[in-house]
C-alpha cells in the first residue's frame, strides 16, 4: 500500500488541497475565500499555505487589485498529483479494511 503524504495529511492542509483541487487546473482561490471555505483563521491558514508552498504543492500570487492587496493560492501540478495519490491511499485503506473484515 502507498504511503500517506505527511504534508497533506494534516486536516487543514487536506481541506486547503481539497478546495484547490476542486478547481480547474491553473485556477486559484483568493485568501479570504479559501479561509471561508476551509473554516480556518488568518494566521493558521497563512502558516499551512506556507508549508504547502515549501513542499511545492501550491503557488502563491500576491497582487494589488486597486489599492487592496490580494493573495491567490493555486495548486501546482505536483500538488495535484500528491493530492490524487493521497486520496487513492485513503481509498485503499478503506478497501483493505473492508476486505479484511469479510
Amino acid at each position: 500500500m502507498a504511503e500517506l503524504d505527511d504534508v497533506i495529511h494534516q486536516p487543514l492542509r487536506l481541506r486547503i488541497m481539497a478546495a484547490l483541487n476542486a478547481l480547474p487546473s491553473g485556477s486559484g482561490l483568493e485568501f479570504a475565500r479559501l479561509k471561508k471555505l476551509t473554516g480556518a483563521t488568518d494566521g493558521n491558514l497563512g502558516a499551512h499555505i506556507e508549508t504547502l508552498s515549501r513542499a511545492g504543492y501550491v503557488g502563491v500570487d500576491k497582487a494589488f487589485v486597486g489599492k487592496k492587496p490580494q493573495t491567490t493560492v493555486t495548486a501546482t501540478a505536483e500538488g495535484r498529483g500528491a493530492f490524487a495519490r493521497h486520496v487513492a491511499t485513503l481509498q485503499e485503506i478503506i478497501a483493505a479494511s473492508a476486505a479484511g473484515g469479510k
Binding site: P11, L14, R15, A18, A19, L37
Partner: peptide
C-alpha cells in the same frame, strides 16, 4: 478524511 474532502469540494 474522504468525507472532509467531499465536503470542501
Amino acid at each position: 478524511a474522504l468525507a472532509d474532502i467531499d465536503d470542501v469540494a
